[in-house]
């Protein structure tokens, strides 16, 4: 846990992973979703704000710079750092039953 912000009771309806912010923005859903990313700049937070992301997990143990954490507190979005690779982390969450938040890629429509 990297932030003071923590919504213990908040429910996460789905998950997604991307390092490309426009991809995150293309696949957003109505409900709170979880974003896994290897990117730690402030734009991840801005993207999360616009795309109803309920919490962000940074993979490979990445710790974002202080401005990113400050913005997260301001926007009230919890940040988590985990030691798994993106592939492992997605696999674990997917096996645990967290559904995918992507509807369809733009290219596949």
């Amino acid at each position: 846990m990297l932030t003071e912000t923590f919504h213990g009771e908040a429910e996460i309806a789905s998950g997604g992973a991307a390092d490309l912010m426009s991809d995150v923005l293309a696949f957003t859903t109505e409900k709170n979703s979880l974003l896994l990313s290897g990117l730690t700049n402030q734009q991840v937070l801005r993207t999360a704000e616009m795309a109803n992301i309920g919490a962000i997990v940074f993979v490979r143990g990445k710790i974002p710079p202080p401005p990113t954490i400050e913005l997260a507190e301001k926007l009230s979005i919890p940040l988590i750092s985990c030691c798994h690779s993106m592939y492992q982390a997605c696999g674990l969450l997917s096996n645990a039953g967290l559904p995918d938040n992507g509807v369809a890629s733009i290219l596949c429509q």
């Binding site: 919504h7 009771e9 996460i12 309806a13 709170n32 009230s76 919890p78 969450l93």
Partner: peptide, 25 residues
């Protein structure tokens, strides 16, 4: 943070969080 398929009581959660946040403000 719990992973559930259906979201319910979201407003109650928000209210509670707001009270918690207020103690820090």
């Amino acid at each position: 943070m719990s992973i559930k398929e259906k979201s319910k009581g979201k407003n109650e959660v928000n209210e509670l969080t707001r009270v918690q946040e207020l103690v820090y403000e």
